[in-house]
């Protein structure tokens, strides 16, 4: 009897040996994207620690330092700013760190909200079928026929009309999250619904039904873990889209309040100076947004391809 000998590698060792990891290592673009994403997320999280100044504390700003070009000493104080400063003498590098923090926060939260909503509705729709399914899917169809930005703008319009102006700045960020999330849940719902319809007919689900496991538990314990693969892919790509949508809204001036600027706000503010020669004020936030969105998107693309043959 050799039952007692259970030889098992650690989870980490097995992960390193997995096909997923190998396909990752063999794709340089993916490795670079992942590195960039990790660096940007870490930098954003550590913004208060690593940024040279707190760009939104008026006390640290010096108007004399306004419009300092990148890598050049300021003509009055002699200070050098890597990425230059804006009109108020705010360090662009610090502003970007803080701005990506807001952008990422909104992005992650919006994706989380959209995924939660979409997965729940998709599971219910796919498992119950019938008129519940028809209702949810028709709503999804209608929603899909409007551009995401239009929906987000609509929700913002309602928000502006309902919430008293004094409170608007405080809750704006939550509204932004909900608005972006609501514009994006359909994808999750559709994917989860179709996977659920396939899974619910598999015999392991039938086996659970035979012994009388209640439907919510079947959905949660049996079906959900088995439909999460594609969701992960959508969520990654969705993160890039959410960040861009947030920036767009902020750029249009309906997003986060100027007291908590995101990358989009920085770009909006900066574009005023684009044609007066101060290119860096808009260029660096723009480039950051581009790199962030592109890296996350490439990561999602890779994940989709790497997981696909396994999805069966």
């Amino acid at each position: 009897m050799n039952d007692t000998v259970v030889h098992r590698d650690s989870l980490f060792a097995r992960a390193l040996d997995s096909d997923l990891f190998h396909s990752f290592i063999r794709s340089p673009v993916t490795v670079i994207s992942a590195l960039l994403t990790v660096i940007m997320i870490t930098a954003a999280m550590l913004a208060p620690v690593i940024s040279p100044q707190n760009p939104f504390d008026p006390a640290t700003l010096n108007l004399m330092e306004g419009f300092t070009p990148p890598m050049q000493p300021n003509e009055f104080t002699g200070n050098v700013y890597w990425l230059g400063t804006d009109a108020q003498g705010r360090d662009i590098f610090s502003a970007i760190l803080y701005g990506s923090r807001v952008s990422l926060l909104v992005g992650f939260a919006a994706v989380g909200f959209a995924a939660l909503l979409g997965i729940t509705l998709g599971l219910i729709s796919g498992y119950l079928g019938g008129w519940v399914d028809a209702l949810i899917m028709r709503i999804a169809d209608v929603q899909l026929s409007f551009p995401a930005i239009l929906i987000a703008l609509l929700i913002f319009g309602v928000f502006k009309g309902v919430v008293p102006p004094a409170m608007q700045d405080q809750v704006a960020i939550y509204v932004l999250i909900v608005a972006i999330g609501l514009s994006d849940w359909v994808q999750y719902a559709r994917t989860v619904r179709s996977s659920t319809m396939a899974e619910k007919n598999k015999e392991y689900v039938q086996a659970a039904r035979v012994i009388g496991v209640p439907a919510p538990l079947i959905l949660l314990r049996h079906i959900l873990p088995n439909v999460m693969g594609p969701v992960l892919v959508i969520a990654t790509i969705g993160l890039a889209l959410a960040i861009i949508l947030e920036s767009t809204l902020s750029f249009l001036g309906v997003g986060v309040p100027p007291t908590q600027p995101s990358l989009g706000t920085l770009i909006r503010v900066g574009q005023d100076f684009l044609f007066s020669g101060e290119w860096w004020i808009v260029f660096f936030p723009g480039a950051t947004l581009l790199i962030l969105a592109l890296s996350v998107n490439l990561l999602g693309d890779w994940l989709r391809d790497a997981l696909n043959p396994r999805l069966r």
């Binding site: 598999k202 015999e203 392991y204 039938q206 086996a207 035979v210 012994i211 049996h222 873990p225 088995n226």
Partner: peptide, 14 residues
């Protein structure tokens, strides 16, 4: 209790 036909589909892979 019930035993099913497809041994590949009747166990939750996760």
């Amino acid at each position: 209790q019930m035993i099913f036909q497809d041994p590949f589909a009747s166990l939750n892979p996760r």
